[in-house]
Amino acid sequence: MSDVHPKSEVVIQVRGLVNAFNDKVIHDHMNLDVMRGEVLGVVGGSGTGKSVLLRSIIGLNHPTSGSIKVFGMETADVDTEDLKGVQLRWGVLFQGGALFSSQTVAENIQVPLRRYTHMSQELMDEIAAMKLSLVGLPPDAAQKYPSELSGGMIKRAGLARALALDPELLFLDEPTSGLDPISANQFDELVRSLQQSLGLTVFMVTHDIDSLRSITDRIAVLVNKKIKVGTIKTLVNDSDPWIHEYFSGARGRAALAGAA
């Protein structure tokens, strides 16, 4: 970590990542760099291992071989308990929100605060209220249980919990799936504005081509067990048939038309 070239600092470094399950190779010597302060979108067809890549980076899946460094610390081959140092610096929003169902939304947000700091209950309540407000939830959501929330509210509450410790790095697993287009747009805008105001680095797995257009700086496409990284402009003209189809199909064209 150096202050000399903060813009070019690599936050996530994946080198030679191989993931295979029962001889079925999913990732074949994959390399990826995620820079500080960027929003990286990760796309790929079903079964190309987007979620496996995410889980490998955050230490939930032990890859067959290869190295993954987050903030310079190896995450691929250690137990999750040993990751405490970096766990404080990232936040993860799981696909289904993964809110703890026996706790209220406010208590969910306070779980990491309680675990890692010694705040008074009043300050934790204030911070929970602030995070809720940041993600656009009404104050009365604080005392609700996850089962009382709608799908969009669960995603927002999950985001509030992921942001509880003011992480530098945010992982989002299909944040807009299951949301209606209007809510999805609002969520995209929310992520973008939080990313800018909190100075976040965002690693986002998504299928939503509108999200890709509106908030990502670069896009990583998982294809043929490898990764191709580029921007929408460069990827549209890519020679790979899947990438071409993805960005030039009806949905892709419609979304990109709005980009101009």
Partner: peptide, 17 residues
Amino acid sequence: PLLHTMEAENLAPVKHA
């Protein structure tokens, strides 16, 4: 930007039942 976002929020503290 951070300050701008935060000042725009209407911050009501959490009320405990």
